[in-house]
Design a binder for these strands. Sequence first.
DNA 1: CATGTCAACGAGTCGA
DNA 2: TCGACTCGTTGACATG
Length: 245
Amino acid sequence: MDKGIEDVCDTGLGLGLSYKESVSISIDQQWRRGTPVEPSLTLGLSGDPFGSESKAKQPQFSRWKYCFSVKRKKDMREDEAETHEKVLTGRASDEEEDGGARKKLRLTKEQSSLLEKSFKEHTTLTPKQKQALAKHLDLRPRQVEVWFQNRRARTKLKQTEVDCVFLKKCFETLTDENRRLQKELQELKRLKYFQPSTHMKIATTTLRMCPKCDKTTGRDEDGAGNIAPSPKPLFFNYFTHSATC
DNA sequence: CATGTCAACGAGTCGA
DNA sequence: TCGACTCGTTGACATG
């Protein structure tokens, strides 16, 4: 996504929506883009440079990790495909959580589609449903739970984007309308300036004047000359001629 | 559970 | 063609 939603939503409506670039941009991505994130060149460290439990809090090492990720992928293709396959299916992920780099599970198409189908039916799961789904998909309940959490969050995010676009359109429409009405008001004021006597005599609430033929109409008077409130709307479109003529 | 973030990964681009 | 790199997606985790 090239545009942050704050760009899209610069409507002045005070929506107060903030949106980090494409949900989130990892530090290594920012680093690669030239954003001033200090890369640490602690390449001399071997194995797990920051300890198993602190790895998530050490983004400055991401570049280091990235540099090796390419090789890792390549190596994996050659001789670790089998191991990786286990990770991909999620079946080996329990054993993988022993302090190494966080493994990326990739759900199979079948797993994804079933999760999606389930999500369409209910966006939250009861413990029973979670268990059943996990068993059926050969995943851990925790994975199913996380998947649903992420899915809800991302659905909401997308909906927010849609709402934002809609509100922006509303704002533009209202701005146009406001501008048009202001213009109309100016015209009416100008008109009033040139014909003060007419307006002084007749209550403005009952006056209908056609600006084209310059006649006032629509005075609802009873027989005694009393002015009755007009049942019609006060405002008419100056530019499209009065309906009273 | 919502939210923010990290990071693995795949796909696409580009220059050598 | 290949490696380096960018970018978007998404599984996983931390926190309130």
